[in-house]
Nucleic acid binder design. Structure first.
Length: 250
DNA sequence: AAATGGACCAACCGCTTTAGC
DNA sequence: TGCTAAAGCGGTTGGTCCATT
């Protein structure tokens, strides 16, 4: 049943790639393309599994890879997109031509996260669930609760918009999920979603345990990149921060 | 000069989704 | 239609380099 195995683990080389292996892989792909990663290593004369070849190509050998340090514009874009998308590195990378998800992920983990933590911005901004230790989540600090609330709000927004994006996908297959998400956010659908903010404000989230809320609750967005950046994302938006007050269902 | 620790990044691991049989 | 492997993706690891002691 099913396909034949992509590679037997025995005899497969692991670890750093040598220049000779790179040359073989580049030469083969330039000549034949990479329609089938499963058979590519054998045909190219490489003792690597297809997965390893694919990663090497997409993260390092591709001709359109942009090497070198990130510009301040790229940096700002990453921060904005991470605030909106979380750790969806592939989606973020799709907005930064020439940059790979792996590169952006490394840059975030080694530079941006530390910098934001040191400036005290990250708790209120783009800290993702995976960045939060379970013990931290149990904290009663309002800022921590806010982070959780913003994250749940963001996820709910994505869930709502994904329904619409799945409809769009059938008519437009050239767009990435992220493109669709951003486009939708700035569309009528997004506007409807933003208008939720105009609902009557019940209570301040920072003073109400999450388990006790029973209706839409406003989130503190004064220092929340997840909320603020949504309106100023580089792809364009005509909303103001006041229009993007965050609510979540109780 | 050697030891140590931190920063950086390429590559691997494992989970999820997609698609072939 | 269900099983399975391929592909895609995010998290993590391990090696290398460099600054500091």
């Amino acid at each position: 049943m099913g396909r034949t195995p992509s590679c037997d683990k025995e005899g497969m080389k692991k670890g750093a790639w040598t220049p000779e292996e790179d040359k073989l892989l580049v030469h083969y792909i330039k000549k034949h393309g990479h329609d089938c990663w499963r058979t590519l290593p054998m045909l190219a004369g490489l003792r690597r599994c297809g997965k390893s070849c694919r990663l090497r190509w997409t993260n390092y050998l591709r001709p359109d890879i942009k090497r070198g340090p990130f510009s301040s514009e790229e940096e700002a874009c990453i921060i904005r997109l991470h605030g909106m998308l979380g750790n969806r590195w592939a989606a973020i990378a799709s907005h930064l031509p020439g940059r790979t998800d792996n590169e952006i992920k490394n840059f975030w983990n080694t530079h941006l996260k530390k910098r934001l933590l040191s400036t005290g911005n990250i708790l209120q901004t783009s800290l993702s669930p995976s960045d939060c230790e379970p013990s931290t989540l149990k904290s009663e600090l309002p800022s921590t609760r806010h982070t959780v609330q913003c994250e749940s709000f963001r996820l709910e927004g994505e869930a709502r918009l994904s329904i619409e994006s799945s409809m769009l996908r059938s008519s437009s297959t050239s767009k990435t999920d992220c493109d669709i998400f951003l486009k939708l956010w700035n569309s009528d659908v997004g506007e409807k979603f933003r208008n939720i903010a105009k609902l009557p404000k019940k209570e301040e989230a920072s003073e109400t345990p999450m388990s006790q809320t029973s209706s839409w609750t406003k989130l503190e967005s004064s220092s929340c990149i997840t909320c603020e950046e949504r309106s100023s994302i580089s792809c364009g938006s005509d909303t103001t921060p006041e229009q993007t007050d965050c609510y979540r269902p109780g």
